Simulated assay, not measured.
Amino acid sequence: MQTKIRNWLLSTLAVAIFAIVGCNPQATSAPTDSPSASPSATASVPAVVPSSPQANNLPRLEGKATVVMTVKGSPITIEVNGTDAPITSGNFVDLVDKKVYDGLVFHRVVREPQPFVVQGGDPQGKNPNFPLEQLGTGGFIDPTTNQPRNIPLEIKPDKASEPIVYSKTLESKNPKLKHIRGAVAMARSAFPDSASSQFYFVLADQPFLDGDYAVFGTVTQGMEGVDKIQQGDRIESAKVTQGIENLKRG
């Protein structure tokens, strides 16, 4: 019984810690007791694709793509799933193609008391003089508009072909793309539509995150390289090796 209580407390603490780190420059931190902004942010009824001009102009991945990310000389192959997460995947592939991730730092690595996540993608980390402990609040600024690019929370319910849930967490906690070991997902703040460029690798199955954060890919080769990433390590390069023709930039 004590072991079960301890594991529950660890999971709850992990949710609280995770909720306050992934964000964009404009976002506010989530409450420390919940991964979502408020109870009203959950819904079991799928919503339509966002119709705002910003959402319409976001990149989309129509199909799949392969990204190879190199860290400390080790290639990490990621299959990006635009079939089940087209906006989230399109954003990631577009940023890879723009070389946004090259040179960025993994600012958050959690392996104790149990394997959790490896997180990076804050553009502020490209500056070698930027303090590591202050990373985690930055997002991609589109140079064509000089405005932050944020993407809607995008989660597809399991065994559902259409539609995808946008801008709301999934109350059923049963998404098609789950937080299993090797999954790649977007970090965000309490505001559902605050994801930008920060992403994380999942080090062990984390089902309590399912339905709250958008998984968009999985590591197909090189997970041993992910397991070796330490806080402060940099992405040497990230390249789209297959599927760039599936990227539609809006």
Rank of each mutant, 00 (worst) to 15 (best):
residue 232 G to N: 07
residue 221 Q to E: 15
residue 183 A to I: 09
residue 147 Q to M: 13
residue 177 L to C: 05
residue 147 Q to H: 10
residue 221 Q to D: 15
residue 143 P to E: 00
residue 127 N to K: 04
residue 237 S to A: 11
residue 182 G to M: 01
residue 154 E to V: 04
residue 149 R to T: 14
residue 222 G to W: 02
residue 213 Y to P: 06
residue 170 L to Y: 06
residue 224 E to K: 03
residue 192 P to H: 06
residue 166 Y to Q: 01
residue 165 V to S: 10
residue 156 K to M: 01
residue 163 P to K: 01
residue 145 T to W: 08
residue 139 G to W: 08
residue 173 K to A: 14
residue 160 A to N: 01
residue 185 A to H: 02
residue 160 A to M: 12
residue 190 A to L: 03
residue 177 L to H: 03
residue 146 N to T: 07
residue 192 P to A: 06
residue 137 T to Q: 13
residue 166 Y to V: 01
residue 144 T to G: 15
residue 128 P to M: 05
residue 161 S to A: 14
residue 127 N to Y: 01
residue 241 T to P: 10
residue 148 P to E: 11
residue 179 H to G: 14
residue 195 A to C: 07
residue 212 D to G: 03
residue 211 G to I: 10
residue 164 I to T: 15
residue 200 Y to C: 11
residue 131 P to A: 11
residue 211 G to K: 08
residue 188 R to Q: 10
residue 203 L to W: 06
residue 196 S to F: 08
residue 226 V to T: 03
residue 130 F to L: 03
residue 178 K to N: 06
residue 138 G to L: 07
residue 196 S to A: 05
residue 212 D to V: 00
residue 134 Q to L: 14
residue 159 K to M: 02
residue 166 Y to W: 13
residue 236 E to A: 12
residue 127 N to L: 02
residue 198 Q to C: 12
residue 224 E to H: 09
residue 220 T to Q: 02
residue 129 N to M: 13
residue 203 L to T: 14
residue 161 S to P: 00
residue 236 E to W: 04
residue 192 P to E: 03
residue 164 I to V: 11
residue 166 Y to C: 08
residue 238 A to C: 12
residue 172 S to C: 09
residue 139 G to R: 03
residue 186 M to T: 05
residue 184 V to C: 10
residue 218 T to N: 12
residue 191 F to K: 09
residue 169 T to F: 10
residue 149 R to Q: 14
residue 157 P to M: 00
residue 208 F to M: 13
residue 145 T to F: 10
residue 153 L to F: 05
residue 235 I to S: 11
residue 166 Y to S: 03
residue 203 L to Q: 10
residue 232 G to S: 06
residue 238 A to G: 09
residue 152 P to S: 09
residue 145 T to R: 01
residue 247 L to N: 12
residue 174 N to S: 14
residue 176 K to A: 12
residue 165 V to I: 12
residue 186 M to V: 02
residue 146 N to P: 09
residue 135 L to W: 03
residue 144 T to R: 15
residue 154 E to C: 05
residue 190 A to K: 05
residue 186 M to D: 04
residue 194 S to K: 00
residue 226 V to L: 08
residue 217 G to L: 04
residue 135 L to V: 05
residue 228 K to Y: 00
residue 182 G to P: 12
residue 152 P to I: 01
residue 238 A to K: 10
residue 218 T to L: 09
residue 228 K to I: 02
residue 137 T to P: 07
residue 194 S to G: 10
residue 134 Q to D: 12
residue 214 A to M: 03
residue 207 P to V: 07
residue 147 Q to C: 01
residue 139 G to M: 06
residue 184 V to K: 05
residue 174 N to R: 08
residue 222 G to K: 04
residue 177 L to W: 04
residue 142 D to T: 07
residue 164 I to A: 08
residue 156 K to E: 00
residue 242 Q to T: 08
residue 138 G to T: 08
residue 231 Q to E: 14
residue 246 N to Y: 07
residue 208 F to C: 00
residue 170 L to K: 09
residue 198 Q to V: 08
residue 148 P to R: 00
residue 215 V to H: 03
residue 219 V to W: 02
residue 155 I to P: 00
residue 244 I to C: 05
residue 202 V to G: 11
residue 168 K to H: 15
residue 138 G to S: 14
residue 172 S to R: 11
residue 210 D to Q: 02
residue 213 Y to L: 02
residue 201 F to A: 00
